[in-house]
């Protein structure tokens, strides 16, 4: 079974049962759009799917192998972008991304890095410490990881936050091309995805007490 599958997940946060018996499946070329009200557990679910958090019960498998199994190469196939940008404010965009690429064993030429930052409209800001960038620019630097690491599965938590209209359009077209190349995306968003993001499945999380 290829792709990402989660079976019978239970998540308890602050002694509140967020969801139980939750199963989902994402296959190649699919975009899963996760919806739900605040506090329904979208972020918790995404973090469980990446393996950052252990579910109370249930299992997450990638290509049929549990992501916690020692043989799993899950992290090589995954890019996760959370609420936090994972950019150190003292370092420049280029430094941040170079160290990130090194940690994720992505071989990266400086030329490619500059090209990607140019695509994202960050020309001239490559060597400025990240703390001097605006929220939208920081978000763009964080998102550049999607271009840098050749991973099949993207798990994105509110990727459109702080982006302007152009940025949103850019990201949506990237979604469409990633899915048509056989990639998988799981994303949450407060606003509905436009048709340019390609066709997508919707998964609704309900708020439970």
């Amino acid at each position: 079974m290829s792709g990402l599958s989660a079976s019978k997940l239970t998540c308890i946060k602050r002694d509140r049962l967020l969801f139980t018996e939750l199963s989902l499946q994402v296959s190649k070329g699919e975009l899963l759009y996760l919806r739900g009200p605040n506090g329904a557990g979208k972020t918790s679910l995404l973090r469980i799917l990446t393996g950052l958090t252990m579910p109370e019960e249930g299992e997450v498998c990638f290509d049929g192998l549990s992501i916690f199994s020692p043989d799993s190469t899950y992290t090589d196939h995954l890019v996760y972008l959370g609420h936090k940008s994972a950019l150190n404010s003292m370092m420049s965009a280029v430094e941040n991304l170079q160290y990130w690429a090194a940690q994720h064993s992505v071989s990266l030429s400086l030329q490619k890095l500059y090209d990607v930052l140019e695509t994202l409209g960050l020309v001239g800001l490559e060597d400025v410490p990240v703390k001097f960038l605006s929220a939208g620019q920081q978000r763009r630097v964080a998102l550049s990881r999607l271009w840098l690491k050749p991973a099949e599965l993207w798990v994105l938590d509110e990727p459109f936050t702080a982006l302007d209209v152009e940025g949103i359009a850019l990201l949506e077209s990237l979604f469409a091309s990633h899915c048509s190349d056989g990639g998988m995306i799981i994303t949450t968003s407060h606003q509905a995805l436009s048709p340019s993001a390609g066709k997508h499945q919707v998964f609704d999380l309900e708020y439970s007490l």
């Binding site: 959370g82 994972a86 950019l87």
Partner: peptide, 13 residues
């Protein structure tokens, strides 16, 4: 605080 730690944990190191 800036999230580098979660990226580090997902790096496979």
């Amino acid at each position: 605080n800036d999230g580098s730690l979660e990226q580090l944990m997902l790096s496979g190191l």
